[in-house]
Amino acid sequence: MVSIAKQQVVQVTLPRRSSRAQFFELLSVVLDPDMNVNCRRIHFDFSLVADWGIGAIATMSNLIEILRKADVKISYGGFQTCPAGAFLEQTGFYQRYLDNDEAFRRGATRHMLPLELVDYERSHAYIENRLKPWLESALDWEEGQGASIEVCMKEIFNNIVDHSMVDVGCAIACADPKRRLIDICATDLGVGIPANVKKKIGDVGDGRAIEMACAQGFTTRSVPGNRGEGLHTLLRNVVDLNRGEVLLFSGRGYVIKSRLKGNETLSVGTNKIGYPGTLISITLDPKSVARPQVEEAFEW
């Protein structure tokens, strides 16, 4: 996948499929164990990319933004033979990173809400004016059906400020017709959940640190209105209320909680390779999303 020359030029042939193992391998080559960039120039070859999900797009966006902040010179190639060219265009990745003309940014389609960098100050407007209308249109939801998901996304952006110490995150969403599932993914470039949790409670494993951050009432730093309910609310609304799945990757830790296949499962652990910042991925079955409660009229 990767080769490094003495002059610190990294050549990366991106994988055909977006497996977690392959992307963590990519991160380990571009970033050192302390999550610092270890190259001056990098070339990404997309010629083999065929079967990616939006989690891979969000991870690539996160990595590119990190490289840009470190003034790394980035080049791209292989699009003429890339089997996933149409997908890269639909996600907005191609337009954001390969076509600098803002006028040609792709708008939302029925199946895709394209990649967007969202700062915290306008995150609620993004949810109200972009994500919520897209969900209702793409999935033919009745009014109010996506209310719990709306709350989740607001808590994700609260988490970006509360745990990651940055004000910008990237968001993307997809209604996958083949899997018949909704995927919503958000990432940030911050210090990560484990690093911030350890400042408060001392040295614990990264997976355990994320698990603690998901506990009700736990917080390390509050923004107005945030009382340590964010990640707990996210898990409760997605998994308990809507029988979905949440994946959290941050630092070397991860928490995966799911009810997509019926019984609830929880996985907490530590990877050998770290994730820069935080990735939060939500997966939902549209048929399982809770409908709004309708109050019956009270009559004397």
Rank of each mutant, 00 (worst) to 15 (best):
D101S: 15
F87E: 00
P276C: 02
T187N: 08
I74E: 10
S288T: 05
T109M: 04
E264G: 04
V161C: 11
E299G: 06
N158I: 05
Q8Y: 13
I280R: 03
G225N: 00
I210T: 04
I256T: 13
I256P: 04
K154C: 05
S164A: 11
I42T: 12
D206N: 07
K261H: 04
G78L: 08
A86M: 08
G190E: 02
R243L: 03
L181N: 09
A290E: 07
I54P: 00
N237Q: 06
E121V: 14
D203M: 11
N242F: 00
I210L: 03
P83Y: 07
D32N: 10
K199N: 08
L135T: 02
Y76P: 09
E229C: 02
R68Q: 15
E121H: 14
F93P: 02
L88Q: 04
F46I: 10
L234T: 04
E296P: 06
R41F: 13
K200L: 12
M1T: 15
V197R: 02
S164N: 14
D119L: 12
D140W: 12
V239N: 00
T265G: 06
R17T: 14
R236Y: 07
E136K: 10
C214M: 09
N196K: 11
E296C: 09
F23A: 01
S3P: 03
K69S: 13
D188Q: 10
Q293E: 12
D167N: 15
F104K: 15
C174W: 10
R106T: 12
E264L: 04
S123Y: 07
N129A: 09
D101V: 15
D34P: 00
F46L: 07
R252A: 09
E89I: 14
N100G: 15
P83R: 03
A213I: 00
A5W: 07
T270E: 14
E121T: 14
A21G: 09
I184W: 04
Y275M: 02
P292S: 08
S222L: 01
G274R: 06
Y120I: 14
V37F: 08
E245S: 11
N36M: 04
K199P: 00
S137F: 13
F23E: 02
K199L: 07
D99M: 13
D101L: 15
P177H: 05
I210V: 07
G244H: 01
V255D: 03
S288K: 11
Q80N: 14
E229S: 05
I156Q: 03
L26T: 02
C152I: 09
E229K: 08
K132C: 05
E136A: 10
C214W: 02
R96G: 07
R236H: 05
M1A: 15
Q80K: 15
D51W: 11
V29T: 09
A171Q: 08
L63F: 09
I160V: 15
V10M: 13
I66H: 14
V246G: 07
P15H: 12
R252C: 13
M112F: 10
D167S: 15
I64Q: 11
F298S: 06
D119T: 14
H163P: 03
P292R: 09
L189D: 05
A125L: 09
V238R: 00
G251P: 02
L260F: 01
E116P: 04
I127P: 01
I184R: 01
G230N: 02
L266H: 09
S19V: 11
T219P: 00
E65S: 12
P133F: 03
V10K: 08
I57F: 07
Q8V: 09
G190M: 03
F218W: 01
R105D: 13
L67T: 06
